[in-house]
Design a protein around this nucleic acid. Structure first.
Lengths: 208, 208
DNA sequence: GTCTATAAAGTGATAGAC
DNA sequence: GTCTATCACTTTATAGAC
């Protein structure tokens, strides 16, 4: 009992602040989030936020770095795996990102929103240079060669795959609050897509 | 020469403010936009903003109403046209929204972002109740009946169609500033999709 | 490390002259 | 209608006691 693992109830002050910041930044974005909101959410004093992180901006950068790392590392990893087929990569991608997004549904809207406001500042935190000459792209080219159909720019394929996984979560507020889709139906849809998206991606490769 | 049409250079003060507000709100969102930014952009005095629109909030509501109307009226219109086939509707939708988004690429990210923050406040401004029993949905059901394949929830189909058009513009900051896709390539991709998306939508209907 | 109090700057809005 | 000046309030950040 000398050293016990940290429970969610007894986080360090620093961790409490980061957790609260993660939640509020992703929900409301950088500009709409007040440092007081964060300190309240964390259940600590406002001054402690600056004691630990110096500034709101600095706290944001730290949280953002973790989020971007978490969000994009999966793509690199899957795309560069030389042991898996194209189909397997699509399956992995869809399964992994659907799971991630069910856990943190606000992530895509948050990331793309902030990315638009500060593209330069965040660019250094994302290593995506390896994507375009990844093993995935080679496999994709080979597959299009093998078929008799007219090849498409690989970007089309990636946009479709990512978009099909991510867009439902971007459109979720619209679906739920305006189109009247209930939470139950939304979850069913998302789950069905884990099977459907890979099928559609195959049929896209066969479209002439 | 007595009455001449308004040129973009001699807009009324009220119009100048609305134009500036539209630009800045869509670029940065409500929270990150300062009323001073708007007055500067419009080339007028800050006090005039409140003289004409009473408050930032009020100006936002007005601008937002126009944006939402512009963005969603097209869907209703196309979906309820009983004179066109399913394929024609998809073609119309893709052509119309691609053109709209090439003109105002920030629209989707802005709309979905604000929609998430104030779903209730904006819900009344969007009439989407008619979508789910639209003629489009009836045609879609009929088409899936006619084919021998297992039918999918119509929401899958709509999410794919809208997502395939809209997602490239949501991902644009990522593509341009992080993945290194130049503006020229991006435009080519978007233009190619005007032809490709309808094809893919057909093949999705044939996927078993 | 944590708190209270407060400084310093930003931001929406208005009064009042022209 | 348009401007300058300014108010009232919010928000980030820090100083200093404990």
């Amino acid at each position: 009992m000398a050293t016990i693992k940290k429970k969610s109830l007894d986080l360090s002050t620093e961790q409490k602040i980061k957790k609260a910041a993660l939640k509020l930044f992703t929900q409301k974005g950088f500009s709409a989030t007040r440092t007081r909101d964060i300190s309240d959410e964390a259940g600590i004093n406002l001054a402690l936020l600056n004691y630990y992180f110096r500034s709101k901006e600095n706290l944001f950068q730290l949280v953002m770095a973790e989020i971007l790392q978490k969000f994009f590392s999966g793509i690199i990893e899957i795309f560069n795996d030389e042991a898996t087929s194209l189909d397997e990569k699509v399956n992995s991608f869809v399964a992994r990102y659907t799971a991630l997004l069910k856990e943190q549904p606000e992530l895509p809207l948050f990331i793309f929103h902030e990315l638009r406001l500060h593209p330069q500042k965040l660019a250094s935190k994302i290593g995506l240079s390896k994507v375009f000459n990844s093993f995935f792209f080679k496999q994709l080219s080979a597959e299009m060669d093998r078929k008799k159909i007219a090849p498409i720019h690989p970007l089309h394929y990636v946009l479709n795959m990512i978009g099909m996984c991510v867009f439902p979560f971007i459109a979720a507020p619209l679906l739920k609050h305006i189109a009247g889709v209930d939470a139950r139906t939304f979850e069913t849809i998302v789950d069905e897509r884990k099977v459907l998206v890979p099928k559609w991606m195959k049929s896209i490769l066969n479209t002439k």
